[in-house]
Amino acid sequence: MKTYFLSIVLTASLGGILRLLILRSDYRQYPTYPHGYISHLSLGFIAAALGAVALPALLEEEFVAVTFLAMAAQQFREIRNIERETLASLDSIELVPRGQHYIEGIARTFEARNFLIIACALALSALDLAFFRRYQLPLRAAGLAAATLLIYFLISNIAGDKRLEHLADIRQGKVHFQGPNVFVDDIHFMNLGLEEAKEEYLNKALGLVLVPKTIDAAATLANIGQRQAIVHICAKLLGIYKDVDSPEFTPLVRRQIKSGKLGVLIIPATRDPQALIAAVKRVPVLEGSVSKPSKSHAGRERDDYQD
């Protein structure tokens, strides 16, 4: 096993570094605290070590070692539960919650990234044993580091999520009232009884209209979890204009039943329509909300189906 020692150390540490590279902390505000980083980095390092050990173990005909991978899989599935529980308990005290659906997506990503790291470390160790092992240490480390960077760019470009701008045409709509009912263009939102609230809406609110590009997009956008993710991100990025005793200012996404288009109504802290459109464009399409009626026979028979 001594012969593989350097290979294992190299690939495990490079795998750990890869985990650091894809552990981003952005507007999703997660994880922003050092302890979140520590737990994810250490788990990422364990994942990388597992990937690094697998191939040498096979070469040494230590087949039992492979069963450890199964145990690791179990362990990483646990991460998903932990993430879900943490985020769900935090969600109950958000003014504009993420919603279960979005949380599920985040938890799934954290789990999947650990599996991704195992696979990458495995690939790196294969590369090392087959090719780089014959070179001197500096050259060997540099070669592996270059391979890690290549993998990083592949991951960040290929595994890029779909965004809302791929599904819908997004434009600004006009916020107006008919009696006590507030509309964005022709999409009805709610009935407001207080004159003060109406004035706030007329002066400060922004409205968007999202027109789905295909029947698949319409089905995906109808998902309530997806809609909650939209308002959460809008409220996070543009500022929340609301407190617990003013639920009438909760940002809303409503669907026009006839056409399937969505309306977004929000009072942002800063009234900047371009920023709002940019925010909505970048909202991730949640995996669980994607549906593809156009892939079915019945879906293609529909009148509104377009190729």
Binding site: G179, P180, M190, N191, L192, G193, L194, E196, A197, V244, D245, S246, P247, E248
Partner: peptide, 15 residues
């Protein structure tokens, strides 16, 4: 009255 009640109950006033 509606404003006070909606603040107190954390509800929304509808017309």
């Amino acid at each position: 009255l509606a404003k006070y009640l909606s603040k107190i109950t954390e509800g929304v006033a509808h017309d």
